[in-house]
Every structure is written in C-alpha cells, then in structure tokens.
Design a binder for these strands. Sequence first.
DNA 1: TAGTATTATGTAAGCGCTTTCATTTATAGC
DNA 2: GCTATAAATGAAAGCGCTTACATAATACTA
Lengths: 335, 335
Amino acid sequence: MATIYQVSELAGVSLATVSRVMNNNVRVSEATRNKVLQAMEQLGYRPNSIAQSLASSRSNSIGILVSELHGPFYGEMLTGIEAEFRAAGKHVIIAAGHSERATEEDGIEFLLSRNCDALILHVEAVSDQYLIELNKKQTPFVLLNRQIAALADRCISLDNELGGYLATRYLLEQGHRHIAYIAGPMWKTDARDRFHGHQRALAGYQLTAEQALFFEGDFRETGGSKGLQALLASGRPFSAVVCANDEMASGALTAARELGYEVPADFSVMGFDNVNFAYYTYPKLSTIDYPVSAMGQMAARWVLKQVYQQSSIEVQQVFNPQLIPRDSVAEAAIT
Amino acid sequence: MATIYQVSELAGVSLATVSRVMNNNVRVSEATRNKVLQAMEQLGYRPNSIAQSLASSRSNSIGILVSELHGPFYGEMLTGIEAEFRAAGKHVIIAAGHSERATEEDGIEFLLSRNCDALILHVEAVSDQYLIELNKKQTPFVLLNRQIAALADRCISLDNELGGYLATRYLLEQGHRHIAYIAGPMWKTDARDRFHGHQRALAGYQLTAEQALFFEGDFRETGGSKGLQALLASGRPFSAVVCANDEMASGALTAARELGYEVPADFSVMGFDNVNFAYYTYPKLSTIDYPVSAMGQMAARWVLKQVYQQSSIEVQQVFNPQLIPRDSVAEAAIT
DNA sequence: TAGTATTATGTAAGCGCTTTCATTTATAGC
DNA sequence: GCTATAAATGAAAGCGCTTACATAATACTA
C-alpha cells in the first residue's frame, strides 16, 4: 500500500502538501493540487485511516449500543444511523447491550476503548446516574428513547405518553368503554409513559383504568398471550385490549385465536411501534407508529452537528407517534 | 487520558515493559508485572487502540457488509457475528450494500479504507470476478451465502438446493402432486438453487415443474401476493405452493385470504428461511430453517481462526437447512 | 521599486503504541 | 568463582499521518 510519502515523492512536493490536498482545507495552488491528485491516482493511494486518527485524535468512528441487533425495531434504527454516517464518511461500531445493566456498561466501556468520537446509546438498564457520570467524560453521546432531565440536550425520544394516549383515545372514539391493558415491564420508562397516556385518554372520558384489566407483560410475544389469558380469566368484560407493543399484541392475537375468539369481532386489539411484522399478522394490526428509522437518523445528525461541527444541520429531539389504523380494531358493539 | 508513558514512569520501568505486560506474550517477571498492573490501575489507564493499531498494523476491526441492516434475516446474522467478536475483543464495522452492485462495491471500498483486518461479506450483486480480484488484495474475507468455486475455502453457505428439495419433498409426502412455485429473482444463486432442489424433489416422484405454475418473484411480500394471483389466474389447478422465502409466502397468505381462499384448506403454502415473523403469520408458516445466526457466528470464527490465528477453532462451511412444519401445510385432499 | 501583506509550500515534531536489537541481570554448570 | 546460557528489561526506531511554525514565493501598495 502506498503511503503519503510515496505520493509526495512522485508529485515532487512535501508530505504536508499532500496531507493538505487530502483534507482540502488550507489553500493549495491548483497546479500542485493536480500534481498530487494525479500521483495519488497513479499509485492507487488510499489514506491510512488509522494513522489519520492517531495524528488527528479523531477516529471518525461512532459507537452504537442497542439492546439487540436482531428484531424489527433495532434493525430499523441502525439503518437510519448507518445511512447518515456513511454518507458523511464516518463509520459505525456496533455493540449489543441485551437490556442488562452489566452488559450495557460493558458495551459502553468497549466502545469507549475503541476511541469512538461519539456514542449513540439505546440503553435501558443502566441508571440515570451512570449516564450523568458518563457525561463528565470526554466522549459525547446521545441517548435514544430515553429522557433524563439533566441530559435533556442529549436525548432523542418519542413522546410515548402521547402514543399511549392516541391508542386509547382511538379505541374510545370507536365506542369502547371497557379497555384492558397489557403493559411492558413497568421499570422501563417507555412502558410507564405509554400507560400514563392510556390513563389520560381514559380520564378524558371520565374513566379510570381497572386493576383487573391490567396486566404487566414483558414486551415479548409470550407476555401478550399470557396477558390475554389472564385478562380473560379475570372474568371482567372488555371489548378492547391495548398492548404496549406489537410483539405482545401479536401474542394476544394468537392466544385469542387459539382460545376461540375472533379479533376484532369479539374484541379489538391495539399494538404499539408499528414494527414491520405488524403488517403480516392476521388481522393486520392497528398500531401506533414509532418513527424509529427517522429517530436513528436524527441521532446521527446530532453527532454530525455537535461533534463534527456540521453546524448547518437541524436536529429534532422529540418525535411524535402516529395512529395507524388497520384491521384489528373495530367499532364497539352497542352495549 | 493516561498514556503508556505515564504508566511506565509510575511503575519505574520502560515503555517496552509496559507494552509487554499488556500483550502478555513475552516473559515479564511477576514482580514487575504487578508493579505495572498496579500503576495502570492507579492511573485508570486504558490503551489507545488506535495507536496500537498503527504500531502493530492490526486494527482489530472486522468489516461486515450485508444487504440491509433491518429485516429479520440480517439482524440474526449480525447478532451471531457481533457476539462472537465481542467476546474476542474485536469490533465490527457495519455497512449496508442494498443488493446493488455499485453500493456493494462502494461498501467494500469503504470498509477497506477503514483498515479492517478482515471482511465478512454478504453480497448479492457483485460479480464473482470482482470477488476473485478482491481476493488478490491484502485483506482476507469470507463470503456468506455464496458459493464460488475458486474461493471455496472462503465460502460459508447453506445448502439451498437441499432446502428447496426438502420443502417440495415434504409437500409430496403430504400427497400434493400439483405444486406451484414462486421463485426469487433468478439471477440470484440462492433463488436458482432452491428452485433446482424443487425440481429434484419433483423428479423423485416422476414429476416436472410446470411452466404455468412457476412465477418469478422478488423475495418481497408483494412478489408473493402478485405471484399467487398470477398462479390462480393461470387456471391450472394446484394444491400447494412453495415460496422461495418467507416474505413471499406471507404475501401469498395475505393474497389468498383476500381472494377468499383458506390456507391450508384450499391449498398449502410453504416458506423458506424461518424468519422470526414466520411464527406470527396466520396460519403459522411451515418453512425451511436457515440457521443464519449460527452461520454468522461461523463466519466470525473463520476470521478468528484464519486472521487472528486462533487455530483451535473449528469452522463449518456448509450448513444444512431443516424442515419446520407448522400450520400452513396440510395433507392433500384425495384426488 | 522597496516594503508589506498574502498565499503557498516545506520542516519537523509529535500522536501512543509495538517490536527489534542490545544490554543487563539472574541462573546454572563445572 | 568464573564462564556459558537463559531470562528480563531498556533504548530507540518506526507505524503513516496532522499540524504548528518557518520560510519562500507572489501580489499588492504607495
């Protein structure tokens, strides 16, 4: 592999000049620039990014920590992030945190040790305090899907409360009055926020959430099916159930079918996230759209702007969910 | 951030010694090793991976190129890869190729310019020739889901032909004799191989694929629904349709329902890949399992073995698909 | 046209490590 | 106790770039 030195020799200029044309910031005369460019071409020169990093103390790499690499949700997120960075010539180092505190902290350590210029974190288990401490260190980071007051300028999140509100309001508008709720793990902020939105929507109709119609699931398919069974077993009547994410909604759908119920004839089901498979379920899942790819992209832009000084970039920090009506919700039968 | 120099000072030894204890290969006396370790501890020293890379001309990073970052398939693959490398302290740089020649080549260039120690490629559009050329360059690579004779030792792939065979044989065993086929884009090797397997299974029963019962899809959902419509429109009777992947099978399922058919009562549907949502469809999709996560992991191991000399590692290059019977296939009605 | 401000280029000192080779120190053999 | 050998450590030369700072070339001013 050719080095900058060989290029400089061939072009008959100094190292510094070659470096300058690469980073075309300082003025180099057209004539020498061309000479250099030609020499590079001729040698098939490609700068050594490692050496560049060491000399400039910029690695041009951004560390990404997500809970999982698979699953419909994170894939979308990564797509948004990668596209944005690749266009900017930066690269992305990825690690998985598996929603466990130790693994997440470990992942952050790992990325830090890789000299990332910035981090994009989708962490769930790590404490606010830990992140606040992390913020005192050199490496800047953005938080996806998390709100911490002390770190507000570093948070990119969805208004989960609004999403929860929209889901339930839609059901109410369809005439439903007995609405069951299958929540996510309540230690997760997004799970809590979604539920609060649900409560607010209910309150708008002078209703409150019934204890018997509440089930705390795990954001997984099995949680949804178990939840539905529990709800049914409670004996309390309901005409609709809102699930705090699509996986659980899908589980609920399957369980309903297996137990001989028909959705939405017997009761309606509402999901959350609008994950790609929501479209494949039967009936197609009515849900709340989580613009996860756009949010990933925005996190990337935040980094471009704050860390790489691309000041012209606009960053949006709070995103709004949107109702996606499909086939799993129907009007409530007249009671 | 503390540097190796400060550690050496604090420990009262030379740079070289510190370096040695880090890479604990050369013998260092217990006493000094402890002194150094303690000094590191005290300073919170973390080696600068960039400097290490430059000095050792090892970046400890592996470039991964997949078609997409989202979608059920690649996510699994990445999970397998990442887990394996992280445990080995290597990191992964990811790029998307979008199944387009230019973007794929571009992605490879990009990863190469990042000084990756090795590449793991899941490329579809790039030519064999290009890869053979690439093989002459420094950076070693493994190919996932591709078979090139000249590069056989670098290929990790599924026996797609066998998969196609298994799918159709299963249908035949269930009594089906008129079997339609919705293929992937036939310029893709895996699409062709799967179809060949289909033909072989048919041949085992003295049957041949009928032209009228063949449709070339695009591996997407829409391809499946269009395909089913076309097959139905052909007027040729069939009692089962095998789809070259799960997405298309899902499309076919949806189309069937919309057209008033019931699966598997009216005809059976077979998928391929056993992608996560295959379980969420209705009816649950009978399919062929593609052990994609295991294959990703194996690609990572190949790299560990060949590039990082972890010679004890065993590598398996060809994987076998497996039949996953679920609900979308039933026995053929007696004709 | 000398004097000054600009612009273009070169020189050389790092960036934080690894690694070869030389040197010192310990261990063993007789 | 003295040499022969092995083990532990140190000195220093890079790895391929970036970037002050210095210098040379050119343009502009009065």
